[in-house]
Write a protein that binds this DNA or RNA. Structure first.
Lengths: 445, 445
DNA sequence: TTAGTACAAGTTGTGCAT
DNA sequence: GATGCACAACTTGTACTA
């Protein structure tokens, strides 16, 4: 049932005469009641002259009809079941308020509107996705190839939503498995950015990696002072003390995140330069979202990695920026108690927000369509789960989270910049290996 | 008029959907009746061609219409309720005397003016918003202490939404009238904050103030350097050059905004300390939202006040912070093409977001309930206006705007702080009158 | 810049033939 | 008596003039 042709007064969005060029596009062809031909609206609904007159007479006469059959007669031109024809008029949204009369027909009108609401309610129940059906991708687990999300950007059926969300959950599941395994993407550290964009996604080969039994490792060592407070000598001492037993998380997450984006068809089909632009724009925020969510999932109050690495406690006197990046980022997730489903959609919406002036118009359009699509899925999901009102509120909360995460992303970049400057000053010969190009792309300003 | 130099710097028209020309300045963008687009005034009110013709025909025909619903239909382009559309014409102040005709329509005119007065009177008696009409408002008027079931279950009806939204539009209309009049709230500048919270709202006395005929005044004087660049001597020269012909906008807007919040039942019933907390938290953002929206409505690309005052062009070499506060703030509104209805709800949602750790649990609950209520109204409105999918997307966009505005609010505070420090340094004896306490509350950090 | 007007086109109401 | 058609009556927004 078309939701744009609407019901009560508040919902009366039917416009009057349209501009010339719009007319052909917007003028109806088929009577919504009897399928006859028409080219105009009556009482808010595309309808033929006959059905118009029929509805009018029904309302004015106030008569109530009874179906002689089973209240589901097919209405065609010439149909004779008045009860079913009138019911159909209501169902498609004919507006009795549009009948101009001095006669008091208010009771009839209230009845009609109540009836309309009941019809809508029963339809909603039948159509909208039932959440309890969502399984955590169990049917996909046999799939050996790298996962892909179906590229359907048409919003025709709720089934599609369900499918899309399940696919997202499945990819996220794989992402999590790899992240919690020994996978570091070490073999790709030397790759150019272009090569990384072109290589096969690693999300397909989860089985090759496992989670070590001794994780999380204990955080046994801590420094008295941070790199911002020490001199060259102390830095050399710290370096020796540091044990390379943790994963290099910023590299791992950057590589995995890039592979994740490849499973998003709307993203993967963009020109490579636009992809780079987008990653540059949203990369840091994506990393923050991922780190924060999986810390929160493990019930940690600050950024915490599966191998036990906990940056905020590695030295005393954390700076404000460190507190923001490593502690504050987790808080909104607790406040909202974000679910897995919500997180998956949030991640995608962060990517869709990477619309910058630098990308092509075509790509921008694609991103905007994707944003529309996924935000609607999020919305539909929340409506089903929490009901109309709570659902809308929660939707607002989660959307607000996007901007918050962007802020933290920016702070993350600032922090990394300061960190790099400090280390470069302490160790000008740069005995450290340079960070992979891809991390630079994520952290560029 | 701004110098061409400034123009090239700030007026990058590519960022706006519409091409701007100098002559479009000061022309309105939105029809005050139906929210359609327009760029001229008719019968004293910014209005589209359709509403203009409609009002004219109503007056000339002398017909009286009857609303088939509850006399609170939302008026949009294409709305069919003649009674409510005409009522809105009157409400926003269309002037029947401006109709030029030989026909005797004097009776009709007197009627209309009487009607206008009645609308004012009836609304004002109830301290602007009639609480008793709100199931919502009255719920916690009666019952502050006992645990509550969500009071919104009663709000399933679209009629309630329409009514609430129309009331908000009406308050906003009054706010705008006062803001665009000679009203400066001068008599309250010496009031303590508590007294300001307790005094009667000025939104009830719109008739006492008028918009001066010579507005907007031209921006005739500009300084070579800003207060950040000059010494004591030059400051004294600047001071002499400055003509006090503009309103002191930050004070006016702060006082009016405070009065505005008093018309919101959910806010007005909070304990005064919590009110102060909230204003401190959201005040600067509210001011930014208001300044930016009314600049955008008048088709200006930077903050511009009804009397012609244009802070960004008062000196050369605007700082980054000034550009952010006075130019960037307006851009998102053009990007979204925000409507009046959306703005009214946005404003309230900004207030509802003033949930801080410092307010009582009870107040927090009230704010959260209000947030739920108004965000659902916004949501329902958008669903009806744009359909399911586009509606959800637009909802997301508008909600995101809240966080953006908070950011700009913070920058606004920073800017005011720097400005005060600079002036204090240049003029330590502080010959200037100290700002009213209420402005300090709005600008506190 | 804004008031007035002519016109095209959409929509409602109604008499009449079937 | 119910139905659908044709057309009259009315409403609306736009384009244009002054």
């Amino acid at each position: 049932m078309p939701s744009s042709e609407n019901k009560s007064k508040f919902l009366d969005s039917q416009e009057y005469p349209l501009a010339f060029e719009e007319r052909n596009r917007n003028s109806p062809k088929i009577c919504a009641i009897c399928n006859g031909s028409t080219n105009c609206f009556h009482y808010g609904v595309p309808s033929c002259n006959g059905c118009k007159t029929f509805f009018r007479r029904c309302i004015l006469s106030g008569k109530e009809y009874q179906c002689q059959s089973e209240e589901c007669c097919l209405i065609t031109k010439g149909s004779r079941c008045k009860a079913c024809r009138f019911k159909k008029c209501i169902q498609v949204g004919m507006n009795p308020n549009a009948i101009q009369t001095s006669k008091n027909i208010s009771k009839m009108i209230t009845d009609v509107i109540t009836q309309q609401k009941e019809i809508y309610k029963s339809n909603d129940k039948a159509n909208i996705v039932d959440n309890s059906q969502y399984k955590y991708g169990s049917t996909f687990l046999d799939d050996q190839s790298s996962p892909k999300i179906s590229p359907h950007l048409s919003l025709t059926s709720e089934i599609t939503f369900e499918k899309t969300l399940n696919e997202l959950l499945y990819i996220e599941y794989k992402y999590k498995l790899l992240r919690e395994s020994l996978f570091t993407g070490h073999e790709f550290w030397g790759f150019s950015i272009d090569d990384l964009f072109l290589k096969k996604s690693t999300l397909g080969s989860v089985e090759n990696y496992q989670k070590p039994h001794n994780w999380p490792l204990p955080m046994t060592f801590k420094y008295e002072r941070s790199v911002f407070e020490i001199d060259e000598n102390e830095f050399q001492v710290q370096k020796k003390k540091f044990r390379y037993c943790y994963k290099h998380w910023i590299i791992t997450d950057a590589i995995l995140t890039l592979d994740y984006t490849k499973s998003l068809p709307f993203f993967n089909n963009l020109p490579i330069n636009d992809k780079k632009c987008i990653i540059k724009h949203v990369g840091a925020s994506l990393l923050i979202a991922i780190k924060a969510f999986y810390s929160y999932v493990m019930n940690h109050k600050y950024i915490y990695y599966p191998d036990g690495w906990t940056p905020i406690i590695v030295h005393k006197n954390a700076t404000n920026l460190e507190v923001e990046v490593y502690v504050e980022t987790v808080k909104p997730l607790y406040r909202l108690m974000l679910t897995n489903e919500e997180f998956c959609l949030l991640k995608i919406l962060i990517i869709c927000c990477g619309v910058s002036a630098d990308i092509s118009n075509n790509s921008r359009k694609i991103l905007e369509d994707a944003k529309e699509y996924y935000s609607y899925i999020l919305f539909a999901y929340l409506q089903v789960k929490y009901g109309n009102i709570k659902g809308a509120t929660r939707f607002a909360d989660i959307i607000s989270l996007i901007t918050t995460i962007f802020l933290y992303g920016q702070k993350f970049k600032e922090f990394r910049l300061l960190l790099n400057l400090a280390i470069e000053k302490l160790d000008p010969k740069s005995s450290r290996m340079p960070l992979p190009k891809i991390v630079q792309l994520f952290m560029e300003n």
